[in-house]
Design a protein around this nucleic acid. Sequence first.
DNA 1: GTTAAGCGGAATATCAGATTCCGGTTTCCC
DNA 2: GGGAAACCGGAATCTGATATTCCGCTTAAC
Lengths: 191, 191
Amino acid sequence: MRADAKRNLDKIVSAAAEVMAERGVSAPMEAIAKRAGVGVGTLYRRFPDRDSLIAAVGDHYVHTMAAALDEAASSGADAWNAIWDFVTWAAAPGRAALATALAVLPEEAIVDREEFARAREGWVRRFDELVRRAQAEGSMRADVGVADLIHLLQVFTCHPDRLPEPVASQPARYLHLMLDGMKAGAATPAA
Amino acid sequence: MRADAKRNLDKIVSAAAEVMAERGVSAPMEAIAKRAGVGVGTLYRRFPDRDSLIAAVGDHYVHTMAAALDEAASSGADAWNAIWDFVTWAAAPGRAALATALAVLPEEAIVDREEFARAREGWVRRFDELVRRAQAEGSMRADVGVADLIHLLQVFTCHPDRLPEPVASQPARYLHLMLDGMKAGAATPAA
DNA sequence: GTTAAGCGGAATATCAGATTCCGGTTTCCC
DNA sequence: GGGAAACCGGAATCTGATATTCCGCTTAAC
């Protein structure tokens, strides 16, 4: 692969990640190409169909998230604070497409992409361990689980267009509210 | 207006409310017409543009909600429980388009529709009073407000397509989690 | 300097949904 | 009961937004 081709490939993946974060996984190919400073033709040469592009973006995100989670988990804080920190990180501006990397990816796009599946599973597992640790510590109620956290992250970190304005602009505020609801003793047992 | 015309008008508004609940305010006109058991032509004769239809649906919902809120508020329970009950009602299946009636309505669509604006404002005001009452009672934290409740209601009661599956199918679970986070003492102060 | 890999983006193909139109029905009033 | 006015349904048509292709022009690489 020629050097310029490689360069463009990288630009395309980053651009796609950004644009998909803003407009959802089905953002126009042309918008992605433009953001990457590249012609649509180049985009199509590299990624013959949208799914392959989504998959590439997915890789990008899973790895980024896994790293952030590990950092929060190993910061020495207790499990509850590690979760709090990770959620805060995930809600930061520019992280909007988190959802993309989670479950939103069309099944077809990730079939056979073992590396991706492995990374994702690893991330989920470690997140789950953290949650269980927090519950064991007595800081998180026992009737909620990683799944709830992941789903809520998806909801609050999806493309801003899909959220009411104040929520879109302060996802952290709302995620923290939800975390407060997940605190041990906060609560009426969840249904 | 001829009797059959009136009949169709009603069918159209109910159908629109349902379909918009499921597919969002920009659901295809044809889908709405079909649900109403009416031709697209009829739909267009009554509502020349989508906004007028949205406005009609809005009226429909605001009144329904206002009634539900008033009922919860006057049930004799304390303010916190009234809120809890209302939120539960709003999250019940078939109520999905709540968002439609709140702020999602395009401004243009409601300009000059004073009756609607008045109903909505009345609803918001009474909801706000309830919230303040709960705070005065000491059951709800003081750093959140009706706006937060309304926005989160919007998030969790929007068209199911826009939410991750588990959230879409159990909005009440997540809304209750949110309420738990809003309980007095639950919490780290919201940002 | 040559050439194959790579590029941009205009042109074209698709598709979903909006909107129009009119021949065929219903109401409703006399 | 009868006829005009008001209504219908939905096929046909129009549009706008994207996807996808294609090919003459560039540029890295040797």
